Amino acid sequence: MSFLTNLFGSSEEDKVSKVGWRILADLGQLNEIIELSHQKPVLIFKHSTRCSISRFALKNFENEYDFKAEELQPYFLDLLEYRAISNEITNRFDVMHQSPQILLIKEGKCVYDDSHDGIEINKLKKFIV
């Protein structure tokens, strides 16, 4: 371990998330998400890896996350790497693009979306019934 790691702790990249993200990296996965959303709610977290606000929102979201695997399936989208997928999400689910942004998909439709400091677990819980 380096001196700085010992002094300040490990970096965000070294920490394992308790969320259980599935990486959204292929347009075809949007069809899978729609199908899965008929069985249980699906969350999409759109994240900009170059944005400190997005990084802060992601960290807070992950720290507060307490859903069980059978309650919610989370997907993670690096929107800089996969901009075409982000654009298709905007079209398919009829939501305005924002970053960071969460979308909750149920029965094939986006039933909730929020961004920036509006990304809160307690708000999301109201839509997962």
Score class of each variant (00 low, 15 high):
residue 2 S to N: 13
residue 2 S to E: 12
residue 3 F to E: 13
residue 4 L to I: 04
residue 5 T to M: 10
residue 5 T to H: 08
residue 6 N to T: 07
residue 7 L to I: 11
residue 10 S to E: 15
residue 11 S to P: 03
residue 11 S to Q: 10
residue 13 E to Q: 15
residue 14 D to Q: 14
residue 15 K to S: 09
residue 15 K to Y: 04
residue 15 K to L: 11
residue 15 K to G: 00
residue 16 V to S: 13
residue 17 S to W: 12
residue 18 K to L: 08
residue 20 G to D: 01
residue 22 R to G: 08
residue 23 I to M: 12
residue 25 A to L: 12
residue 25 A to I: 11
residue 26 D to S: 11
residue 26 D to L: 05
residue 26 D to K: 13
residue 27 L to N: 13
residue 28 G to A: 04
residue 30 L to P: 05
residue 31 N to W: 00
residue 32 E to C: 01
residue 33 I to N: 00
residue 33 I to C: 02
residue 36 L to M: 07
residue 37 S to W: 00
residue 37 S to A: 01
residue 40 K to R: 07
residue 42 V to S: 02
residue 42 V to A: 03
residue 42 V to N: 01
residue 44 I to N: 09
residue 44 I to W: 06
residue 44 I to Y: 08
residue 44 I to R: 06
residue 45 F to P: 11
residue 45 F to R: 14
residue 47 H to M: 08
residue 47 H to L: 11
residue 48 S to C: 01
residue 51 C to L: 06
residue 51 C to S: 15
residue 52 S to P: 12
residue 52 S to W: 03
residue 53 I to Y: 15
residue 55 R to M: 11
residue 56 F to E: 10
residue 56 F to H: 07
residue 57 A to T: 05
residue 57 A to N: 02
residue 59 K to Q: 13
residue 61 F to M: 10
residue 61 F to N: 08
residue 62 E to M: 07
residue 62 E to I: 11
residue 63 N to P: 07
residue 64 E to Q: 06
residue 64 E to V: 01
residue 69 A to C: 04
residue 70 E to A: 07
residue 71 E to Y: 10
residue 71 E to A: 14
residue 71 E to D: 14
residue 71 E to I: 10
residue 71 E to N: 13
residue 72 L to Q: 02
residue 74 P to H: 02
residue 74 P to G: 04
residue 74 P to M: 03
residue 75 Y to A: 06
residue 77 L to G: 13
residue 78 D to M: 06
residue 81 E to F: 08
residue 81 E to A: 15
residue 82 Y to R: 06
residue 84 A to Y: 12
residue 87 N to I: 00
residue 87 N to R: 07
residue 87 N to M: 01
residue 88 E to V: 14
residue 88 E to C: 08
residue 89 I to V: 09
residue 89 I to H: 01
residue 90 T to H: 03
residue 91 N to E: 15
residue 91 N to H: 11
residue 91 N to W: 06
residue 92 R to F: 10
residue 92 R to I: 15
residue 93 F to R: 05
residue 94 D to T: 10
residue 94 D to W: 09
residue 94 D to H: 15
residue 94 D to C: 09
residue 95 V to K: 06
residue 98 Q to P: 01
residue 98 Q to F: 05
residue 98 Q to D: 14
residue 99 S to H: 06
residue 100 P to K: 08
residue 102 I to M: 05
residue 102 I to W: 04
residue 103 L to M: 15
residue 103 L to F: 15
residue 104 L to V: 15
residue 105 I to V: 11
residue 105 I to D: 05
residue 106 K to F: 05
residue 106 K to V: 11
residue 107 E to C: 12
residue 108 G to S: 09
residue 112 Y to F: 15
residue 113 D to F: 10
residue 115 S to M: 07
residue 115 S to R: 07
residue 115 S to P: 09
residue 116 H to A: 05
residue 116 H to I: 10
residue 117 D to S: 13
residue 117 D to H: 12
residue 118 G to K: 06
residue 119 I to N: 09
residue 119 I to H: 08
residue 119 I to M: 08
residue 121 I to V: 09
residue 122 N to L: 04
residue 123 K to P: 00
residue 123 K to V: 00
residue 123 K to H: 10
residue 125 K to T: 11
residue 125 K to I: 04
residue 125 K to V: 10
residue 125 K to L: 04
residue 127 F to S: 12
residue 127 F to V: 09
residue 128 I to R: 04
residue 128 I to H: 04
